[in-house]
Amino acid sequence: MSLPKRIIRETERLISDPVPGITAVPHSDNLRYFDVTIQGPESSPYENGKFKLELFLPDEYPMVAPKVRFLTKIYHPNIDRLGRICLDVLKNNWSPALQIRTILLSIQALLSSPNPDDPLANEVAEEWKNNNVHAIATAKEWTEKYAN
């Protein structure tokens, strides 16, 4: 099956005009599979971290959301230990007008502002709410340990 023109255009733009702090490179053998890196946003516990993600565009894309998963371990209330991300635009708030770059920007924004009230990793969320200082320290520690 040939690659839809939209995916070609998006890939070209991701490479020619990348989003600051984000890279996305398609696999040469499967152009629907991207290796993504996201820089931890400044003044967040993930600062200076370089997080690896995988992004896959299903056949129905753009009518369904891309599948995105963190490959780097991360301490975050909305990301579980398998790297799955709890983000509305990846689930029922997906719109075909969104793109790979907008999704990656949303994930970067999620790193800046975790939402422990809608958790995916319950223990992390509890810690985040009850012992915020400790949670942020752990997040920093994990960033140094795993995201380099």
Partner: peptide, 8 residues
């Protein structure tokens, strides 16, 4: 003149 969905 681009459709936001197909980018064409």
């Amino acid at each position: 003149l681009v459709c936001p969905i197909c980018q064409q």
